[in-house]
Amino acid sequence: AVTGSQTALLLRAFEKDRFPGIAAREELARETGLPESRIQIWFQNRR
Rank of each mutant, 00 (worst) to 15 (best):
A1M: 14
A1K: 14
A1F: 14
A1L: 12
A1N: 13
V2C: 03
V2R: 04
T3V: 06
T3W: 06
T3N: 09
T3L: 05
G4R: 15
G4S: 14
G4Q: 14
S5W: 15
Q6T: 08
Q6F: 07
Q6W: 13
Q6N: 10
T7F: 14
T7E: 15
T7K: 14
A8E: 11
A8N: 08
A8Y: 10
A8S: 10
A8T: 10
A8F: 08
A8C: 14
L9Q: 08
L9G: 03
L9V: 14
L10H: 00
L10Y: 00
L10K: 01
L11V: 12
L11A: 05
L11M: 15
L11S: 04
R12C: 12
A13R: 02
A13V: 08
A13D: 01
A13I: 05
F14T: 02
F14M: 04
F14L: 03
F14S: 01
F14E: 01
E15A: 11
E15K: 12
E15G: 07
E15R: 07
K16Q: 11
K16V: 06
K16S: 08
K16L: 09
D17R: 03
D17F: 05
D17E: 09
D17Y: 05
D17W: 08
D17A: 05
D17H: 07
D17P: 00
R18A: 12
R18V: 04
R18E: 12
R18D: 05
R18M: 14
F19R: 03
F19P: 04
F19Y: 09
F19T: 05
P20G: 01
P20H: 02
P20T: 03
G21D: 13
G21E: 07
G21Q: 05
G21H: 06
G21V: 03
G21W: 02
I22T: 08
I22M: 13
I22W: 10
I22H: 11
A23H: 11
A23P: 04
A23S: 10
A23L: 11
A23I: 13
A24F: 10
A24D: 09
A24Q: 13
A24V: 14
R25G: 02
R25D: 03
R25A: 03
R25E: 02
R25P: 00
R25T: 09
E26Q: 13
E26L: 12
E26C: 15
E26W: 10
E27K: 13
E27W: 10
E27R: 15
E27N: 10
E27Y: 10
E27P: 00
L28Y: 02
L28W: 01
L28V: 02
A29H: 03
A29T: 05
A29V: 06
A29W: 02
A29Q: 05
A29M: 08
R30N: 06
R30M: 08
E31I: 15
E31A: 09
E31K: 11
E31W: 11
E31D: 09
T32V: 07
T32F: 01
T32P: 00
G33L: 03
G33Q: 04
G33V: 02
G33I: 01
L34W: 12
L34C: 02
L34A: 01
L34S: 00
P35H: 07
P35W: 03
P35T: 14
P35F: 03
E36D: 06
E36F: 06
E36S: 08
E36Y: 05
E36R: 03
E36L: 07
E36K: 04
S37Q: 11
S37V: 10
S37K: 09
S37E: 14
R38T: 15
R38Y: 15
R38H: 12
R38N: 05
R38C: 14
R38W: 15
R38D: 14
I39K: 01
I39H: 02
I39L: 04
Q40I: 12
Q40F: 12
Q40T: 09
Q40G: 07
Q40S: 08
Q40L: 13
I41M: 14
I41H: 10
I41R: 08
I41P: 01
W42L: 02
W42K: 02
W42R: 02
F43H: 01
Q44T: 07
Q44I: 12
Q44D: 11
N45R: 08
N45P: 04
N45T: 09
N45C: 11
N45D: 09
N45I: 08
R46D: 02
R46K: 14
R46Y: 12
R46I: 09
R46S: 06
R46V: 06
R46G: 04
R46H: 08
R46P: 02
R47M: 10
R47K: 03
R47W: 07
R47Q: 08
R47S: 05
